[in-house]
Design a protein around this nucleic acid. Structure first.
Lengths: 188, 188
DNA sequence: TCCATTATTGAATGTTCGTTCCAGAATTGG
DNA sequence: CCAATTCTGGAACGAACATTCAATAATGGA
């Protein structure tokens, strides 16, 4: 019978994600990866295929994790507006850790269809969920009724990116908090 | 007497900027650079030192060019509010071309002091100019008076990044125009 | 204990990387 | 024409890259 895998694929993938978040695809070598993932070189190739496939798996997993965390914050509070605030608050709180989604878009733009498909799927899921919550907040009178919910959803997603870029560039906590407050002025 | 340089350093640097904008530092090889700059390999090393110094010179030049273009748009219209709109409008119009400033921050974060100094200087210049124009627009009753001009300046700068990331990720013109409109709602 | 499988790691491959050396071509003022 | 300089590009260097090969170790149910 086959020897079971000893290393945890998920744990190894998390270590790869941490490296790609900080250094991107080109700035991360295969040997950095095997070191951080604590697996043998051959296991990396056996399990993930090659470095590019590992990168795509990392971006996919990262997108899943981030989407799940965004949705948890967004849909947690009963009041939709509080959910919107909670989601952006989580982004501010986590902003010290670079975003692999943004890093990947910066590094590759739309040059790779496989990668773009991952980003588009994650964005679509979030847009729908955000748009729904914006509509609820509008119905509750918490957000101005004269804005398209989907446009407001896009604005908030864009602002998530803005906060993360600002943090990566060195913005302090007060700076990020101010960005968050001002984003919500657009919702009035 | 020394033979004068034949190639145009500025023109060569512009070609390097174009490559670094699209591919970043690690994704751009020295041979890509000499090909695009149309200079010999030795000339690259004689003129710029090494690949990293060329990259820093590129980021510096790009920052100067962008700051100049931002200020021209910002300070062009007599009405301050119109200047703010013109500046963001220019960003939307140019958003198809990737931003070397954002790319550099994504790729390196704060890991290199030389690079961070370039970004900080450019950001400081823009913050002051934007803040001044925000104050003027507040005095003219075009912007809500209850927001710190510097915070509003930071918000607009962050939104410049947001628009650029969205474009790099595939957002169409309508998407970007909506982002621009919503950013100005925060100024009310 | 055996077997079939997975995991590890030394060694290797072919390629690319950034950079230097160097010889010859090109330039231009004197 | 000459001299001093810059520019080009072949060749090379040392290192690193992603990936493969192969031998051996480890695993765990039968």
């Amino acid at each position: 019978m086959a020897r079971p895998r000893e290393f945890d694929r998920d744990q190894a993938l998390s270590a790869a994600i941490a490296l790609f978040r900080e250094h991107g695809f080109e700035g991360t070598s295969a040997s950095m990866l095997t070191g951080a993932m604590k697996i043998g070189r051959q296991s990396l190739y056996d399990t993930f295929g090659d470095k590019w496939q590992l990168y795509c798996a990392s971006v996919q997993r990262y997108a899943e994790n981030e989407t799940r965390a965004h949705l948890a914050a967004l849909n947690g509070p009963p009041e939709a507006f509080d959910g919107l605030e909670a989601m952006i608050q989580r982004v501010v709180a986590e902003a010290r850790r670079p975003c692999l989604g943004i890093g990947s878009i910066c590094e590759f733009g739309r040059s790779n269809e496989q990668l773009s498909a991952i980003h588009d799927a994650a964005a679509a899921t979030l847009r729908v969920a955000l748009s729904r919550r914006v509509s609820e907040a509008q119905a509750a009178g918490r957000i101005a009724p004269d804005v398209e919910p989907m446009e407001m959803a896009d604005f908030l997603l864009a602002h998530v990116a803005a906060i993360r870029i600002a943090a990566r560039g060195g913005a302090d906590d007060a700076h990020l908090a101010a960005l968050r407050r001002l984003a919500f002025r657009a919702l009035r």
